[in-house]
Amino acid sequence: MESFTEPMRFVNSWRILNLVFLIFLWAKGEYATSVFILILLLLFLMSIRWRFKLPVWSVMLDAAVCILYLPYTSIAYFGLSLPLFELALRGKWPFALPFFIILFVTPASPAWLFWYFVLALFMGLFSYASLQNLQKYKQEADEQRKARYELERIKTDLLAANQSVSQQAELMERFRMARQLHDHLGHDLTGAALALQAYEYVQEPEEAQKLLQEVKRRLELSTKSLRETVHNATPSALIGVENLEYVARNFYQVEVRFEKSGDLLLVPAYHWGLLEACLKEALTNVARHSDATGVEVKVQVAGSIVRLLVQDNGTLQKKEQTGSGLRSLQMRARSLGGSLSISANNGFLLVCVLPLLEKG
Rank of each mutant, 00 (worst) to 15 (best):
I154N: 09
H187C: 05
A195C: 05
R288G: 02
T5I: 08
Q330A: 07
A333C: 06
F100R: 00
S74H: 10
T156S: 14
T293G: 11
A147P: 00
I37A: 15
E173Y: 07
L189D: 04
L97N: 01
V247I: 14
L119T: 08
L189K: 05
L211I: 04
D183C: 03
L97G: 04
L171E: 13
E220R: 09
N313T: 04
N345Y: 07
L336S: 05
L40T: 05
E296L: 13
M46D: 14
F117K: 06
L151E: 11
F36E: 06
N313K: 08
C278F: 03
W115M: 15
A195W: 01
N243V: 01
A292F: 00
K155T: 15
A282D: 04
A282H: 03
N18S: 06
P94M: 09
R51W: 12
N345Q: 14
G191I: 14
E214K: 10
K224R: 12
L43Y: 04
L19G: 02
G186R: 05
L356F: 10
S127M: 05
K53P: 00
T33N: 07
R153N: 05
G262D: 02
G325C: 10
E6K: 12
H187G: 09
S13E: 11
T315A: 11
L226C: 03
P205D: 03
W93Y: 13
G191M: 15
L25R: 11
E143K: 09
S164R: 15
A302D: 13
A141R: 12
G191E: 15
R334W: 07
F175M: 14
I102E: 00
Q300N: 12
L97K: 04
H184W: 04
L283N: 11
F348Y: 15
P98Q: 07
S3I: 10
I16F: 01
